[in-house]
Design a binder for these strands. Sequence first.
RNA 1: GGCUGAGUGGCAGAGUGGCUAUGCAGCGGAUUGCAAAUCCGUGUACCUCGGUUCGACUCCGGGCUCAGCCUCCA
Length: 460
Amino acid sequence: MLEIYNTLKRRKEVFEPIEPGKVRMYVCGMTVYDLCHLGHARVLVVFDTVVRYLRYSGYDVTYVRNITDIDDKIIQRANENGESIDKLTGRFIQAMHEDSEALNVQSPDLEPRATHSMPAIIDMIQTLIDNKAAYVGPNGDVYYDVSGFAGYGSLSGKKIEDLRAGARVDVDESKQDALDFVLWKRAKPDEPNWDSPWGAGRPGWHIECSAMSTQCLGNHFDIHGGGMDLAFPHHENEIAQSEACTGEHFVNVWMHNGFVQINEEKMSKSLGNFFTIREILKIYRPEEVRYFILSSQYRSPLHYSDDNLDKARGALARLYTALRDLPEAAPAEDTDYREHFNKAMDDDFNSPEALAVLFDMAHDINRCREKDVKRAAALAASMRKLAEVLGLLQQDPESWLQGGITSDGMSDEQINDLVVQRDQARDNKDWAESDRLRDLLQDAGILLEDSAGGTRWRRK
RNA sequence: GGCUGAGUGGCAGAGUGGCUAUGCAGCGGAUUGCAAAUCCGUGUACCUCGGUUCGACUCCGGGCUCAGCCUCCA
């Protein structure tokens, strides 16, 4: 029985889809004005894993992840670059897709873009005005009237009075209340704009997600996810807008992933302490990054450090080492591991515990591979099947172990030549020469393993 | 100030009212020409103070510390 921590309830609850066997899920995607950093990678990987597990559990999932391709920062960046908005967003959307693919993140079923969803956005704003939940300010902008929505603050556990008291919100004379937020902004000269009943302009940030999610998934759907920082105000505002518009309950389960931290601080653009996915992929392989992300439960902080990425590398080496040299086989009948794995993932997607099951399997494989190859091979097949749910261990073990970031290292040919030389020295019992060659390779990051079947090597 | 979440062994990171998490690192052994990989064994822990309990790291309450949100942010 799958339990998910629901931010709205502040506890785990048994997941029950609105429609039996089906899950409709929406995740707030990127604002495409720059390259994705590790924090974005976490959202991509975490919710990809959620979708994989739901599908593995038998649900028919419709997964929507939007793209915000119009906002202040995009306009600003395009101006700075002297580049058109379309060109800028096109570039970063492509980069995001490349990064996702590298991290073995499957494409969402739908990937709506704000600029392609204007009719739905405008309709929604019109309905909100008709329902007296929104008003046109003296400056021509359209605002949402927070005071009219009774449940405001329920997602983030905030009280309207507290918010007003601590308001650091810009004083804006056009708003009736400091907490009101903009639905439609009148275009300034030279800004991109769309026609609307309230003049040429563009949507506020929050309304696009309400419009796109309900357009793709209906007024009431199962899961809405995103980073913790979106809970307030973004998701709070989405609830207010959507429910005031449709009159229906918006979302059953709200999921929020924790931050990537660096030196005990949130990794973020504004703090400038971020690493882009691309920077990290120059040093670590994508699967190592994915493993690193999944080595912490999605709501916990994820501590970025080279040391922790190195550990991910070591852990994957152990798992792939267990998988090598085994014949193809059907997955084992033995379901204890699978049950344990499912139990871990059923508990709010506890990936660290699920990974521990894979290590138990690796241990078992190593123990029985000599005496019972059939069992070892079957276990290996089961292990890969479970790992696939996490998006891991799908590569050829030997290739993985010999692979690595090889930009300035030895080529495979050079390595193989040296290994052959060393084997000749070993045949001659010339241990001095043999050890010299091993040290030489080791300095180049190559580890040798002698066995009855011959010498093999791998990159450290 | 208001709200949220967290404090576990050298590091990372799960979990449980009494019974080995797991990985890396350490130590001893097997194996090896030497190694590596693997196996066997092993050490180190649950922020603090109270309470509940036969028994709490695990439940409850106070405190301390940390992170985050309250402004764009995944």
